[in-house]
């Protein structure tokens, strides 16, 4: 009889080397680490909006991982496409920003300078704008405030 074992209590990580069934088309995983993902998050939300919404609606229909594989592949392809485009067009600005995020606990507010440069480049080259949904009417979005109260805590 099998009992419940928490994954964390295992003495070694469980690895299942079996590949995906061949019936599922291959898609290269994005493989981007957290800081570049965080740096690109709002552009990803803008660029892949339809695919993301499609995927999330599909997940709302059924939580089975097998149910939304197709939509999931589209999301991943779109993300790969976006990261490639970002690297082609704004490589320096992108790297500056995500390196700054790496050095600042992955918080946006200490990295406004490189972020503004990146946002400008992304708007000029790719036409993508960072918008934060739910910002109150008539209030400057937090990433565009010139003199914020909260900067870096340590100088």
């Amino acid at each position: 009889m099998s009992t419940f074992h928490e994954g964390a209590s295992s003495s070694q990580p469980y690895k299942d080397p079996t590949p995906l069934p061949t019936s599922v088309p291959k898609v290269a995983e994005l493989g981007t680490t957290s800081a570049p993902l965080k740096s690109a998050a709002f552009f990803f939300g803008a660029y892949c909006k339809e695919y993301n919404e499609d995927f999330m609606l599909c997940k709302a229909e059924n939580r089975d991982p097998a149910h939304c594989l197709k939509e999931g592949r589209r999301v991943t392809r779109c993300a790969t496409d976006l990261i490639t485009k970002m690297r082609e067009n704004c490589l320096q600005q992108f790297e500056d920003h995500w390196n700054c995020l790496e050095l600042n606990n992955q918080e946006y507010n200490p990295c406004r300078k490189p972020e503004r440069v990146l946002n400008k480049c992304m708007f000029e080259k790719l036409g993508l704008v960072k918008t934060i949904p739910g910002t109150p009417e008539g209030q400057t979005p937090i990433h565009e405030v010139q003199k914020p109260l909260f900067g870096r805590m340590q100088k």
Binding site: L20, F55, P65, T76
Partner: peptide, 22 residues
């Protein structure tokens, strides 16, 4: 919102892995 925007991407990747294991 930066995290919400990343949910579909991470979920899709996790789903593929979960499906493979399943």
């Amino acid at each position: 919102w930066s995290r919400i925007h990343l949910v579909p991407l991470l979920l899709a990747e996790g789903d593929r892995d979960a499906y493979r294991r399943q």
